[in-house]
Amino acid sequence: MDNFTPLASLFGGALIGLSAVVLMLLNGRIAGISGITAGMLSPSGATPDRGWRTAFVAGIIIAPLALVLVTGTRPDIGFVAPVTVMILAGLLVGFGTVLGNGCTSGHGVCGIARLSTRSIIATAVFMAAGVATTFIVRHVMVGG
């Protein structure tokens, strides 16, 4: 557990929860990243609310950059897979989150906070699939 960061992770998680509360208070919406992003991509006729979705995604991209500029410390961003595998991973994440109506934020944070049965089950399934995939990649395929 060399890299364990309980306080920073708890605080960062609380900010994510606060974001969810703010979006509910102001716009009356669930802060689900996959749903917000997928809705941004829909044909304009089907999505009259593309503006706030685009602003939300812009905020997610801008905030880390702004914090890094202010604090002057670059975050650790380490990758575990080559670009080719990242393409497959991205396709699965995009397809799966839209098919399953949510991701770590919409189901894992907002849905569990609302005690939604669908979200609790979806979170259990994607956690289990993530753990199983990681085990196979890191301990079965590499023989270690």
Partner: peptide, 10 residues
């Protein structure tokens, strides 16, 4: 969907 997402996440 949750299963496919989890595989991609892992």
């Amino acid at each position: 969907g949750a299963g496919l997402f989890g595989i991609g996440w892992g």
